[in-house]
């Protein structure tokens, strides 16, 4: 059952990802990406990473993609892509992607530890939310602060960049 779910969601995310690059309309691409992210989130949950899965949907599928769509709508340029089609970049991109996949397959074929099967988590272990929370606010307390500062800087940067008179 779980295996079947894996294949379903893996297919969903891969098809979604392909949809991103195949669709000419940016809006369609954005929706495909949301589909891919949902598939990914499902895979996370299948890996017992509930918090990460939820965050993936909330942050990526929600906030980030809304932002993308917002910008696309703002610019109103779905027609832009149709003007011309360059074979060079397409061929190069696909070739490199294929080479990369071939390399990946060969690496994974040699990776014996990769054939492990998932073990059940010990009964009565603390939930992932609790464990991640503890880690974040004890061991990784300082990085959390740094990331907070980073978000602040990003916010200010975005405001500065978005101002009209950008010379």
């Amino acid at each position: 059952m779980l295996d079947l779910l894996f294949y379903i969601f893996a297919t969903l995310s891969v098809v979604g990802a392909l949809g991103v690059i195949v669709n000419k309309n940016p809006v369609t691409s954005a929706f495909s990406l949301i589909a891919a992210f949902i598939g990914l989130a499902a895979l996370f949950i299948q890996l017992d990473a509930y918090l990460v899965g939820i965050i993936q949907i909330l942050v990526y599928g929600g906030a980030v993609m809304v932002l993308f769509l917002f910008i696309i709508m703002l610019m109103d340029l779905p027609s832009e892509e149709r003007r011309k089609f360059g074979w060079g970049p397409v061929a190069g991109g696909i070739l490199l992607g294929c080479v990369f996949v071939v390399q990946l397959v060969r690496v994974l074929a040699d990776y014996s530890a990769g054939s492990r099967v998932m073990q059940d988590l010990p009964v009565g272990a603390a939930s992932d939310v609790e464990q991640i929370g503890k880690l974040m606010f004890t061991q990784y307390y300082f990085p959390v602060q740094v990331v907070g500062v980073l978000l602040l800087v990003a916010t200010i940067g975005v405001v500065v960049l978005s101002k009209k008179e950008l010379d």
């Binding site: 970049p89 991109g93 490199l96 080479v99 990369f100 390399q103 060969r106």
Partner: peptide, 21 residues
């Protein structure tokens, strides 16, 4: 930018090839 990106990715693939294979 895309040709730069292409070269960059090509370099990455090459590095993988050299390091792993």
């Amino acid at each position: 930018l895309q040709s730069y990106g292409f070269l960059f990715a090509l370099g990455a693939v090459l590095v993988i090839y050299l390091v792993v294979f």
